[in-house]
Amino acid sequence: MSSTDGPGPGLSSNLVYLLKHAHLRMAELTTKALTPYGIEGRELGVLLALADLEPASQQQAAQRLGIDRTTMVALLDALEGKGLVSRHPHADDRRRNVVELTDAGKDALRLALKASADAEREFLAPLSPQAAEGLRNALRAIVIRPDP
């Protein structure tokens, strides 16, 4: 291996570089795993958020995912077009849309979760089970912080 192969010592220890390339690899594996089910990683996130909150308003799901209203509407439009979610006005507040998984959405979520878990196992394969759990815990501590 020549000195120009690989990222080199400077990049190999740079957290931004490592996180970016870890994300790219995980996204590549997830995309490949979800393609047979006709959904993308972001759409899987929406299905997961809705399954946890069901029935939920569009706004609640967007807040849980940390995305803006416009992006949420676009994602829901795509999922609704695929028959995976349905929207209807809230019974008590007709200005709010309630979003629910359809039966097809529940099936897609179940299958996509298995495929996503397989992609995660492939991604984490270079690590011991303890190191993989440590990575998850460390990322959870960084990403999911209680409000100050």
Rank of each mutant, 00 (worst) to 15 (best):
P36F: 05
M72K: 06
L111K: 14
A62V: 06
R42V: 05
A108I: 09
G6K: 01
M26S: 07
G45W: 02
S86K: 15
S128T: 08
G83N: 12
A138W: 14
G83S: 11
A117P: 11
R145G: 00
A117T: 15
R64C: 00
P7E: 06
R64I: 00
A115R: 13
Q58F: 06
R42H: 05
P129T: 01
P9E: 01
G6N: 05
P126L: 01
I67V: 01
K106V: 10
A51M: 06
T71I: 00
Q59E: 14
A131K: 06
G83P: 08
D147Q: 09
N14R: 06
K106Y: 06
R95C: 02
E120G: 13
G66P: 01
L44F: 12
A132S: 09
H90K: 14
R140G: 11
N14P: 03
A132W: 04
L79M: 10
S57H: 07
E28Y: 10
P36G: 08
D93P: 05
L19H: 15
I67W: 00
L76Q: 04
D107K: 13
L76W: 03
T31Y: 11
D107Q: 12
E120M: 12
E40S: 15
P9Q: 03
R145Q: 01
D52R: 10
G66E: 00
D93G: 08
